Simulated assay, not measured.
Amino acid sequence: MDMEQRRKWNENHKKLKEIILKTEEHSQIVQLFLFQHSLLHSSSIGQKVQVTLEDEVMKNLDQTTFRQYPVPNPDTKNSIAWHLWHIARIEDMTMNILVNDDQQVLYTANWLEKMNIAFAHSGNDMPEGDIAELSSRIDMDSLLAYRAAVGRQTQKVISSLIPGQFKTKVEQKRIKRLFDENAVMQHSKWLAEYWSKKTIAGIILMPATRHIFLHLNKCIRIKDKLNKQSMKLIIDKKMVALD
């Protein structure tokens, strides 16, 4: 996605926000969500020709850049690995616990073992040592496969909703599940409280779309910054060699 396509994504998100509670426009809402959501995952998810925001993140992304922590960006010091894992976890728990009251994708195929990590929570308020461990250990290919599985499940969940469900409040028993399944850490109760005040529409407009968009853009800025630093280092070394 280039800058013009990202601008269009923002415009469509604004439109989605305007119509999402209009029961009579349920079909249009679902289709617009599916389109917006597909642009936040690998192009293989939506089977579209258009380059997605995840495609842009992964283009020429090497392991060093993927794992570097901390990073020198003003809006985040967390690694690209952490950001991709975080948005996958948030999407998984909100869509499959809060919206669908079903099993998280995380526990459908030994994903923790495949990703080579032990962190099942959202990543909010995560200690620096744990972020460093996750960044260095997580298997990139398995993380991307997990995120793809989460994305496919999200599209199934939203496609199965019936007119009027977007107005439904998140049930408290589902909020409780977040803690029962260690999806949200006890010292991050603020996150569960924030979600507990939302309708299904509110969950869709942030965790399932806007939240992902913001973090993927951070990933692109991280990659660009680190690539510029690497290029500058190479040039500086060449200049020294010429002296």
Results as ranks from 00 to 15, higher is better:
25 E>Q: 15
131 I>D: 01
101 D>N: 14
21 L>T: 06
9 W>R: 09
80 I>G: 02
12 N>K: 15
42 S>L: 13
12 N>E: 14
29 I>Q: 05
126 M>I: 15
73 N>W: 01
43 S>R: 15
13 H>W: 11
41 H>T: 01
108 T>C: 08
134 L>V: 11
15 K>C: 01
83 H>M: 10
62 D>Y: 11
132 A>K: 14
34 L>V: 05
73 N>T: 15
111 W>T: 07
67 R>L: 06
68 Q>V: 10
39 L>H: 06
91 E>W: 00
108 T>W: 02
46 G>L: 07
99 V>A: 05
21 L>Q: 05
45 I>K: 11
9 W>P: 06
64 T>C: 03
48 K>L: 14
99 V>E: 08
98 L>R: 04
88 A>E: 04
69 Y>K: 10
15 K>R: 15
124 N>V: 12
71 V>I: 10
108 T>F: 01
86 H>F: 07
105 V>G: 00
63 Q>A: 13
45 I>D: 04
74 P>Y: 11
100 N>R: 05
57 V>Y: 04
43 S>V: 03
79 S>F: 06
68 Q>D: 00
79 S>G: 03
55 D>Y: 07
69 Y>T: 11
55 D>K: 04
8 K>A: 12
46 G>W: 08
107 Y>T: 12
8 K>W: 02
125 D>L: 13
102 D>P: 02
12 N>P: 00
86 H>N: 06
8 K>L: 11
129 G>H: 12
47 Q>K: 15
22 K>N: 15
84 L>I: 14
44 S>P: 00
56 E>H: 07
100 N>M: 04
60 N>V: 00
76 T>L: 08
126 M>D: 01
61 L>Q: 07
48 K>S: 13
50 Q>E: 15
37 H>E: 13
107 Y>Q: 09
41 H>Q: 12
130 D>L: 14
54 E>K: 10
123 G>D: 02
41 H>P: 02
99 V>H: 04
116 N>T: 02
76 T>P: 09
26 H>K: 09
120 A>P: 05
47 Q>R: 15
77 K>Q: 09
21 L>G: 03
133 E>N: 09
15 K>D: 04
26 H>M: 08
16 L>V: 04
123 G>V: 09
47 Q>G: 14
111 W>A: 03
94 T>E: 02
136 S>T: 07
18 E>N: 11
18 E>R: 07
133 E>A: 11
65 T>N: 03
9 W>K: 10
120 A>H: 04
9 W>V: 01
77 K>T: 13
67 R>H: 02
126 M>A: 04
97 I>F: 11
77 K>P: 02
20 I>Q: 02
38 S>P: 05
129 G>E: 15
14 K>M: 10
122 S>V: 05
101 D>I: 03
79 S>H: 03
97 I>P: 00
111 W>Y: 15
40 L>S: 05
54 E>Q: 14
129 G>F: 12
